[in-house]
């Protein structure tokens, strides 16, 4: 089972022959995010992407926690579960582990996934349950009206930190790689084409895929990702990761130092042969981790795309395989045998 499913994230999910469109995935609920919120773009991108998968709509489930992004399931005409703060990966784990015929998507945010729900996220990643986790990172708490988040930069002035936040932020990509994630990607709300290309790869991945989506909160943290959206700047600082391709922006290139660490240099100053070629499929996570650290200093240059995509057995498959093995080796369970399984005696 394991070998055949590797890389086929949706192999067990029933397909449909019916032609689907974006409209099929819109629910009848009025969308209630703030005007201008990046969530609208992500919703539209997902709604227009889902028909491409050709799955039976009833076999798709969106599970969310709490936060602005967690309203997402209400707006999709699939099955949906808007749960409680931070717990979506746990709930989705139970669902996906017992129902391999479902395509399960977790919608979460930086507070939901990395603060209150951090434990569930890292354990879902190491287990490699067949889930697609979309982490909307706006680097702020929106729903509670503007406190700093675990991805806010140090010194962030917010309602709860009038003198600036003290905590070092998480880098979600580094965190996920450290948590043994088998698939880690990053994309941007405003770049629909790129967003959908990462979703496509995430959906095809069997196991847990984590996709960080830079999402603008125009109310409490506007322009947080402006350098990546500024037409004058974005091509220069965005390092697009494509497996097998040199890692470059319009003017920069990634080179390996003598000590093995990575550096970003002027593209014009290096020979093509010196530029690091991306290898997302390398079992060793060192390159993916090193790439995840390249956005220091803050937005000097930012890799986007699939950092890591490696194949290993998914939790739900292995769990099902144990049930199958127990049943094959010893036969399906019979209740009467179970009750009689200890030392018994008869009184007549």
């Amino acid at each position: 089972m394991t070998e055949t499913l590797n890389g086929k994230g949706l192999a067990l999910v029933p397909k449909t022959d019916a032609k689907q469109t974006l409209k099929d995935f819109k629910s009848d609920q009025e969308v209630r995010w703030c005007p201008g919120c990046g969530d609208y773009a992500i919703l539209a991108a997902v709604q227009s992407f889902l028909p491409e998968l050709g799955l039976r709509r009833e076999n798709i489930v969106f599970v969310s926690g709490i936060g602005c992004s967690s309203r997402f399931p209400y707006y999709l005409n699939t099955y949906g579960f808007h749960s409680i703060h931070g717990r979506a990966p746990a709930i989705a784990t139970g669902l996906a582990a017992s129902r391999p015929d479902l395509s399960v998507w977790v919608i979460t945010g930086d507070g939901d996934a990395l603060s209150i729900g951090g434990n569930h996220l890292i354990h879902a990643l190491r287990r490699n349950v067949n889930l697609n986790v979309l982490l909307f990172n706006n680097r702020i708490y929106g729903l509670t009206k503007g406190q700093y988040s675990p991805t806010s930069e140090v010194g962030k002035i917010t309602k709860s930190t009038p003198m600036g936040s003290l905590d070092k932020p998480f880098n979600p990509i580094s965190l996920a790689i450290g948590a043994e994630a088998s698939f880690v990607g990053r994309t941007i709300d405003s770049d629909r084409k790129h967003l959908q290309s990462v979703l496509r790869e995430a959906a095809a991945h069997r196991g847990t895929s984590l996709v960080e989506i830079y999402q603008n909160c125009n109310i409490f943290n506007d322009n947080a990702f402006e350098p990546l959206k500024d037409p004058a700047l974005r091509d220069d600082i965005t390092l697009r990761l494509e497996h097998g391709q040199p890692i470059v922006s319009a003017i920069k290139a990634v080179r390996r130092r003598a000590d093995g660490t990575l550096e970003v240099v002027d593209r014009a100053s290096v020979d093509e042969s010196e530029i690091v070629v991306h290898d997302a499929h390398n079992p060793d996570p060192s390159l993916a981790f090193a790439l995840s650290r390249l956005d220091e200093p803050w937005f000097a240059h930012v890799p986007i795309g699939v950092f890591r995509s490696v194949q290993r057995p998914s939790y739900d498959e292995e769990m099902a395989a144990q049930v199958d093995r127990a049943t094959t080796e010893r036969g399906a369970g019979r209740l009467s045998d179970l009750l009689m399984s200890g030392d018994t005696w008869r009184i007549s």
């Binding site: 717990r87 669902l95 569930h120």
Partner: peptide, 18 residues
């Protein structure tokens, strides 16, 4: 599970799935 909360969360997720 990784903790008590995940234990009940996964159970509820499985219930949602039937």
């Amino acid at each position: 599970a990784e903790d008590e909360i995940a234990g009940v969360g996964a159970a509820l997720g499985a219930s949602f799935g039937g």
